[in-house]
Amino acid sequence: MATFIAIVLAAVLTNNFITVKTYGICPFLGVSKKTSSAVGMGIAVTIVMVIATLVTYPVYTYVMVPLHFEFLEIIFFIFIIASLVQMLEKVIQKLSPALYGAMGIYLPLITTNCAVLGVTELVIGDMSQFLAGATMNIGWAVLYALFAGLGFTLVMIIMSGMREKLNYYKTPKALSGFPTAMVTASFICMAFMVFTYIVI
């Protein structure tokens, strides 16, 4: 239970992918103009992160490490993620056209989203600080991926809410667009810094 809480808090708040690790910034800046699209992107990323971890973690731990193929991890991981995204797109298109309409356009962008590759690389590294003494296994890895994705979604939603409001104000030409978004993001990061005081 302690490990569960530690992982959830770390993934969502203290080590949030966007505000602390700065992973997945491209969709964070690109798809956060409207809350609806931010939610869609966030959920799509979360799903891909969970499935990617579910596949890469066992492949790495039980196949690549025993065979001493660790150095091929990047190629394998990116290949698995790219194929997964393609497959997921096809499956969703077949099973639920409605969901595909809502989420389909975000899926191709996810291959080059570093949050997905980032989480698969993180969980095969040293995770001891989040585990509160437990041993790393696939369950914790997937849990971490799930809540890291939800943390990503949370910040996406906050950001999109702020940007929707910002539309009502006139900004100087040089500051409009990305600069304003980044300064907004900076304030969100500052707000999230308070969570670093959570001692697990």
């Binding site: 040089a174 600069p179 978004a181 993001a185």
Partner: peptide, 25 residues
């Protein structure tokens, strides 16, 4: 201290883009 954290990085990056665009303009 804030400039050593992602918050400061965002701030500096945002302002740098604005300055760059402004000068180019």
């Amino acid at each position: 201290g804030i400039f050593a954290t992602p918050a400061g990085s965002f701030l500096v990056y945002g302002i740098s883009i604005a300055l760059f665009v402004f000068v180019i303009d």
